[in-house]
């Protein structure tokens, strides 16, 4: 096996890791404040890719427009879901939120499969990002480099927003004790709506990133989301840095496994999850 192949797998690992990190980050933010395990997340990622596809083919708005518009549209659709449905479940067991979001995912995917079939739709790469860099030891497609860098920047930006700003302090405080933060005069219900919209918007954004790499297809989310949930469990439910580090880290580990022992590449994350659950059930970055 060549070093070229090794670097190739590492690159694929980093790309997959970018999506794991972006998606598990949104899940972590949502779980932290809403206490809801958002099973619709994969479908919302798929929705992001489809909205980008529609913008291009129906409205003539290209990739860069999609990057700006799709997270907002998908995020707003999430806020509507939160206002109309999720809001009624906060006082109930986790299980109800899980059931509702799982059901929504099935409905969304069903609608898109019915309309567009299971075959993927192509989404062309923006022209400015086509081509490859020759790094000497390997060829690096520019679009993939862009996705890795942009995802990392968004992840770190989100971390900064939550851990280092006043807005983030409200969010962390409300995660611990929402009633008290409300008693101080903060409109926590609105914050919850916006937070859900933000987390879902991140999923939509990941969908736009994914559209030129993978095909735009109704089941693109459901195949990814299972791995993402494993990432969330390994990183620690609700931990921001945990989702980022484990997202990228597990992507790379998966890539390396593909190189050294390809037979295990689709199970390695779940093996790690099982080991982490046995040794540190709260996850690598989880508290208590």
């Amino acid at each position: 096996m060549s070093t070229q192949a090794l670097f190739g797998q590492l690159l694929i690992g980093l790309i997959n890791g970018s999506f794991y990190a972006l998606l598990s980050l949104g899940l972590a933010v949502i779980f932290g404040l809403l206490n809801i395990i958002n099973f619709t997340h994969g479908a919302q990622y798929m929705l992001g890719a489809f909205v980008a596809y529609f913008l291009l083919n129906k409205a003539g708005l290209g990739y860069w427009w999609a990057l700006a518009v799709v997270p907002v549209l998908v995020g707003v659709s999430g806020m509507v879901v939160e206002r109309l449905m999720l809001r009624h479940l906060y006082r109930l067991d986790h299980l109800y939120g899980l059931l509702l979001t799982f059901g929504l995912a099935l409905i969304l995917e069903g609608i898109f499969r019915n309309e567009f079939g299971s075959a993927g739709l192509p989404y062309s790469m923006p022209e400015s990002l086509t081509g490859v860099y020759n790094l000497g030891f390997m060829y690096l497609p520019i679009y993939r480099a862009w996705v890795i860098v942009a995802s990392l920047a968004i992840c770190l930006g989100t971390w900064f927003l939550i851990e280092r700003t006043k807005l983030g302090a409200y969010l962390r405080a409300a995660t611990e004790n929402g009633a008290l933060v409300q008693a101080f005069g903060v409109n926590v219900p609105r914050m919850i709506t916006l937070t859900y919209g933000f987390g879902v918007g991140l999923a939509g954004l990941a969908g736009v990133f994914a559209a030129p790499i993978y095909q735009v297809s109704p089941q693109m989310g459901s195949s990814l989301i299972i791995v993402v949930f494993a990432v969330v469990v390994i990183g620690g439910m609700g931990s921001i840095m945990g989702s980022i580090v484990t997202g990228f880290g597990l992507g790379v580990i998966e890539g390396l496994t593909k190189y050294f022992y390809p037979e295990a590449s689709s199970t390695v994350i779940f093996v790690i999850m099982a080991i982490v659950l046995m040794i540190r059930p709260q996850g690598l970055f989880g508290q208590r």
């Binding site: 009633a179 008290l180 409300q182 008693a183 101080f184 005069g185 903060v186 926590v188 219900p189």
Partner: peptide, 13 residues
């Protein structure tokens, strides 16, 4: 009133 409005009348808790 909802909780988050009440504090604005001048209550510290």
């Amino acid at each position: 009133w909802p909780t988050y409005r009440i504090a604005h009348l001048g209550i510290g808790y």
